[in-house]
Simulated scan of single mutants.
Amino acid sequence: MRQTPANRSIPLWHWPTVDRERWLGAIQPSSIFDLKEGDLSQLAPITIEGIAHGYGQWLNWLHQEEPSLLLLRPADRATIERLRAYHSAMIGRGLADYTMASRIRSIAGALGAIEPGHDWSIIQLAADRVHREAKPKKAIGKILQPAADVLDFGFSLMESAIPGMNDLDAGGYGSLRFRDGLLIAFLILCPLRRRNLASLALGKGLEKQGGHWQIRIPGEETKSGREIYCRWPSLLDEALDEYLAVHRPALLARYPVRGPATEALWISRLGGKMTSHAIYETVCRRTEVEFGTAIYPHAFRHIAATTIATLAPEQTDLIMTILGHVSMRSSYKYYNKARTLGAAERMNGTRAKVRRALQNTWWPEQNLRSSG
């Protein structure tokens, strides 16, 4: 979804003073003997960030409706009538049910910390109802593509971006194509969540050990709370070397910024770190041109899980590892999906190709694991 005034989130430092100060107090680390109402300090940082982002979207909607509403106390703004109007506005903008449930749940979570003396359970119950009755906005079967085809597309982008070929110069459109190809190929081989993907940086998240690049994301930064530790896909070793030696430096040099250069792995066309939203739009734009329908980053996780369920159904624990599921309940649906989508028939022609391409990347359990 493109950033527009209607869907932006007001950042924390622009929140009303009362909201900001109480929120900061609620997320401050506390000892086990500090029993304070609305304490969020024990939540994972990624969870706290998500709640703040959703609450910022609520504040933005209030500001769009009537700026003076932000002068009211937090509890006085969150009337049932306004919450109903907010829900109707989200429906009118065509947001997915799961997105609406998440935003409503964020309001309940934030208000529980900012105004702990109130009972906000009705908002949480409303979010639960929206989630329970949610219907997928897009038919996932129309989005999924064979893993081998997506991998081939990533490589074709990189191959067409070699400096000196097709008049594509390093640092120009050629480097952007190479970056996008590497990004797409990486996603099909190691489908991290978008936030974790955007956070990868040299020396932090991506480290070289024993001649190989390793990915290590601490548990406090993952949705499941478990550390992700895996080898960079060996199939992309040469591509990563090419990107780090030629294209990443060239992209950094396009628009030099003051101060030290970013250590982020994925560099934007403006020479800075790619945000998770920029990654989303880039992947969707590239795949829509190639396949006729956009494959959003989260769908790569479905492709990976469905591929394993189809080609290696005996490796049930591998889906849990790749997707970071805490239990098999979330993973079993991919076995059903593999059957109902006719994935086996669709992949007959690429079965051997997928096995060859993936067997040395994320298929072996020892190459990708989540630590408990």
Rank of each mutant, 00 (worst) to 15 (best):
A134S: 14
D76A: 09
G92I: 04
A44V: 03
L70P: 09
V130K: 08
Y55L: 07
G54N: 00
Y55T: 02
T99K: 13
A44W: 05
I48Q: 11
Q57R: 11
A148N: 06
K142N: 08
G50R: 05
W120P: 03
S121N: 09
S88A: 12
H118N: 06
A126M: 15
Q64N: 13
A139C: 00
G94K: 10
L69F: 07
R103L: 04
I46Y: 07
L95W: 15
G50Y: 03
L40R: 12
D97W: 11
L71I: 06
R129F: 01
R103H: 07
L144V: 10
A78E: 04
A75Q: 12
I107Q: 04
Q57N: 07
P136N: 05
P146R: 03
A127K: 07
R93D: 11
I51P: 00
P45V: 08
D39N: 12
D97N: 13
A89P: 06
E115W: 01
W58Y: 12
L72W: 01
A96I: 06
Y86K: 01
Q124L: 11
A108S: 12
A44N: 08
I107E: 01
A96E: 14
A89Q: 14
A101G: 13
H87E: 04
I48W: 08
A89C: 11
M90L: 15
I140F: 02
S102V: 09
L72P: 02
D152N: 13
R82E: 05
L111C: 03
D152T: 08
I143T: 12
Q42A: 11
A147P: 00
L111D: 02
I91M: 14
E65S: 13
H87L: 08
S68F: 05
G50A: 05
Q57L: 14
V150E: 00
